[in-house]
């Protein structure tokens, strides 16, 4: 703060002269005015979030299972829910709006990217269904329904068997085949093309 005090009077003088002579010296003025940081540590704007409103909005689920709600899913029930609430867009196995289970010939040069061969974390299936599906009625499924659907889709992709129950403990432990395929971005600019 002290090192700026010398500059203040001369700065004021310069501003006064500049305005008097109608000069176009904006840049010079700006560079000669000592900048004093007036920012407070905190402004005090906003209000404290209540626990209830955080709980209402905090619907995300992490790969370690943090965020998964109580409830449990069974493959057979999930299959029934899929047939009533998902099949219109996704078809019975796959469909036009994002392949969920691969239906194409594996010999094809460019295989479809599905939950079974491309989704690296099983928790993402739960998180995405709960947040965004069904497309026309997002948020309409109960947590149990989301668990059932997650179980069915994992089974349909050959990742779990018909009997496996899916819940907050078992879902994070499901290892997806694609997890080992993903690597972090290593592009850094410069001459190398990556």
């Amino acid at each position: 703060m002290n090192r700026y005090s010398f500059w203040v009077p001369s700065t004021l003088l310069f501003v006064a002269l500049a305005s008097h002579f109608q000069t176009n010296g904006e840049a010079d003025i700006a560079s000669s005015i000592a900048k004093v940081d007036t920012l407070p540590a905190r402004f005090g704007f906003g209000r404290p979030a209540t626990g209830a409103e955080i709980t209402r909005l905090d619907i995300d689920v992490r790969p370690d299972g943090k965020g998964l709600p109580p409830g449990q899913g069974q493959v057979a029930i999930g299959r029934q829910i899929f047939a009533t609430k998902c099949v219109a867009c996704h078809g019975t196995v796959g469909g036009p709006n994002g392949s969920l289970v691969t239906t194409t010939n594996p010999d094809r040069k460019r295989p479809e990217k599905t939950i079974g061969n491309y989704w690296p974390y099983a928790t993402t299936v739960f998180d995405y269904i709960r947040r965004a599906m069904p497309f026309s009625q997002p948020g309409s499924l109960t947590n149990d329904e989301v668990y059932h659907l997650t179980a069915y889709l994992l089974q349909a992709n050959g990742i779990i068997d018909e009997k496996t129950l899916i819940n907050a403990q078992t879902l994070p432990r499901v290892v997806m085949p694609a997890q080992k395929l993903f690597v972090p971005d290593d592009r850094k600019g410069g001459p190398e093309i990556k």
Binding site: W119, T124, Y128, P184, G189
Partner: peptide, 27 residues
């Protein structure tokens, strides 16, 4: 840690060589 949402796993990731896929390609 990252949340591994759908848009950073099954989407917005791209193939590189050797059957690998690049993730969190921000720039």
């Amino acid at each position: 840690q990252p949340f591994m949402t759908r848009e950073e796993t099954s989407k917005y990731t791209e193939p590189i060589k050797d059957g690998k896929y690049r993730q969190f390609s921000f720039d």
